[in-house]
Write a protein that binds this DNA or RNA. Sequence first.
DNA 1: CATAGTCTCGTAAACGTTTACGGAGATCGA
DNA 2: TCGATCTCCGTAAACGTTTACGAGACTATG
Lengths: 340, 340
Amino acid sequence: MVVKGIRQLADHLDISIGTVSRALNGKKDVNEETRRRVLEAAERLGYVANQSGRALRKGSTGVIGFMMQTGHEITGQGDTFFMSVFDGVQTVFARHGLDLVALLCSSEEDPDAYLERVVARGFADGIMLSATRRIDHRFALLDRRKIPFVSLGRSLTDVGQPFIDLDFEGMATTVMMRLATRGHRRIAVLRPHDDLNLGHVFVERCREVLAVHGLSLEDDLIFNASPNEAGGYRIGQELARHPNRPSAIAVLNDGSVTGLFHGLEAAGLTPGKDIAVIGLHSPQARYLSPRLTCFDLSLRDLGISLAETLLASMPAYATLYPDAAHRRLWPMTLIDGDSG
Amino acid sequence: MVVKGIRQLADHLDISIGTVSRALNGKKDVNEETRRRVLEAAERLGYVANQSGRALRKGSTGVIGFMMQTGHEITGQGDTFFMSVFDGVQTVFARHGLDLVALLCSSEEDPDAYLERVVARGFADGIMLSATRRIDHRFALLDRRKIPFVSLGRSLTDVGQPFIDLDFEGMATTVMMRLATRGHRRIAVLRPHDDLNLGHVFVERCREVLAVHGLSLEDDLIFNASPNEAGGYRIGQELARHPNRPSAIAVLNDGSVTGLFHGLEAAGLTPGKDIAVIGLHSPQARYLSPRLTCFDLSLRDLGISLAETLLASMPAYATLYPDAAHRRLWPMTLIDGDSG
DNA sequence: CATAGTCTCGTAAACGTTTACGGAGATCGA
DNA sequence: TCGATCTCCGTAAACGTTTACGAGACTATG
């Protein structure tokens, strides 16, 4: 048997709905014996408070939305990237009875309009943004709606909200120093869609680091490609027939590495020998040939930090996370491979 | 300026909230001029009906939940697999004002309890299941709660609900026939966690097909592994030192292929030469060395079909999809590669 | 015994929306 | 002119929950 409303549960117990509600919500002014009865009955009859009624009354939904865009391959993150981050986020949220859901915006719908709609509806108590663009209207939009949010990634158009981003500056420094000291003079960069912010941050820092070594990053060695295998393959081919071929390339597109290797090989070049390749973060790095030199980062921990940062900006939870990072660049450590 | 309730919007227009609501919802008994004014004002002031209030009154949320488990690598499908499916699902849902969200169940929470909680709360009007297990209590649970649902995958414990699953029988037939006629006598299978249903369906059909050729599938040639690179690597090593090594292997774990190749190579074996490898469906199939022989399937179309199937089982939409498939095995076509 | 305090519970209002119902005014036909 | 019909709109109830408020029954204290 399944009971449908608090009214039914209350009738069944011969108690008022007020007391039932208080018992279920752990309020103090309810007899322990009564509470036990209520809890037992709720468990046995499968009663769970209705989401809409509860949210309407409390003014909060207990839901946090992580916005993602389907179809489009835009982020450049690999297959299990988000699932690992989510797992970390959940660990934190579970402590507070919050639920994480992924808000899936179709490739046929305008992301800004989608987000505005979802937020205006009061669907979630907080929002997590990813795939942040250089010019990204979502920041101003969320700011106007006064909803707590955090972004996984930076933007030129942010509004002072908290964020966590990979430390692309640190990554650029590490990679360029390594390549320069190993004698590379012409270095290329492969980055995803130009609208995304991360590629710009990376390239900018690369230029600074290279300048110290008296080197520069040539414009014709900055490649954009879809963060998938086909994109990487195309660039591999392009590199091979480049009139003034670089001797190394830094790849921000995780999903492109396999394709890049293959594209190079198809053109007769051996990655790691004819051209050094350094990647960002690939779970399959150890299983490529040659083994990919790339970075290690704990995605689950990143998720935990992301969740804590968001909660710290929500009045109801702020005191619980007094020293959560407000804005943080997530450190990454290089792991040696055979590719560069 | 942003308006927060229908009351404010109504006051601003000097109209009753009833009329405003009717105007916004496209009811007929409202003057066209009035409707125009309401729509214009709502747009300008950024009013969108509150989710909780609307859902509470209407008894439906307009949300469909797709359940996924984070952390656990169990399905073997990556982010891009589901993102493609989601994109198809969305195209259908968008036509009806439905929203798809991914319900993310943490690896620390019991999936059955999680689903029960979400459904009992009335969070969604319909549910999509994936990563279906051989014995999967979620089917009975959803059946008991009388909520429309569809599963991407089969189970021994289903309850007659609609499903769509990959045609593992067809796949098994194609693969085994191909291998047998090419002279392979000892054939292995790599499948994900034993709890999942798909591996059993596949193996069963393999046995039947092989029997026709006077062959059998040896128990010690059926491998289980986590559907990731590490899992594949381990099996690669294991195959190499197998006392009676098979000459071919069918791999259901998409995420394991890279690792498998590497594991074999590390042990001195060349995939496609020393041992034939046929995969399931890998976006990077063309970019591996050797090129992976595997199957092609349109994930976006699968998503469309999945959505239509669900809607067909929901009273409110059933008449719109009179000939949606109730239970369907999704066809897959083999693409030649160099691996087997 | 009177009073104050404590514990427990019931009552009712409120959250924001949709919608059944009915009423006012306009139009129309006889 | 008078119903009848139609168009448009306002009123109020209902959805399921939480919670402020107050009341009744005890207990403690003097």
